[in-house]
């Protein structure tokens, strides 16, 4: 066994370990946490992770607003300027693809990377 063999061996082991590190780092960065994404008139306004309790105001230029509250991993609209309050009366959402919609304000909150929803009920 030559000295070069030892160098090669060490280099390969280092490369493999670096690769392991890189892969685990990359997968950590790319697995995204569940978050609520707010849209106004189809344009993305902000992303809010469901893991942090926050309250944000989604305000339009004309003064209309929706208050988005995130609590216990769920998102809900607690107050809004719209006349019908359909969005406020909607239950809190947290499942994959669920959404809160306020038609008068053209506001949509959508859950991304949320927990997959099971079936509520079935019949046969």
């Amino acid at each position: 066994m030559k000295k070069n063999d030892v160098i090669l061996l060490a280099a390969l082991i280092v490369a493999a370990l670096a690769g392991f590190g890189g892969v685990s780092l990359y997968s950590k960065l790319s697995t995204r946490e569940p978050q609520a994404v707010a849209y106004l008139d189809g344009e993305e306004q902000g992303r809010y992770p469901l893991s942090e309790d926050t309250t944000v105001e989604i305000r339009q230029t004309d003064g209309s607003y929706n208050i988005l509250q995130i609590q216990n991993g769920k998102a809900e609209i607690t107050a809004a300027s719209c006349p019908d309050k359909v969005c406020v009366n909607h239950r809190p959402v947290g499942g994959q693809g669920e959404s809160l919609v306020c038609l008068p304000n053209k506001m949509v909150v959508e859950i991304e990377n949320g927990e997959e929803l099971g079936i509520d009920a079935g019949t046969r």
Partner: peptide, 8 residues
């Protein structure tokens, strides 16, 4: 390299 390195 020796045989070892070639094999690796």
């Amino acid at each position: 390299f020796s045989v070892m390195g070639v094999s690796i």
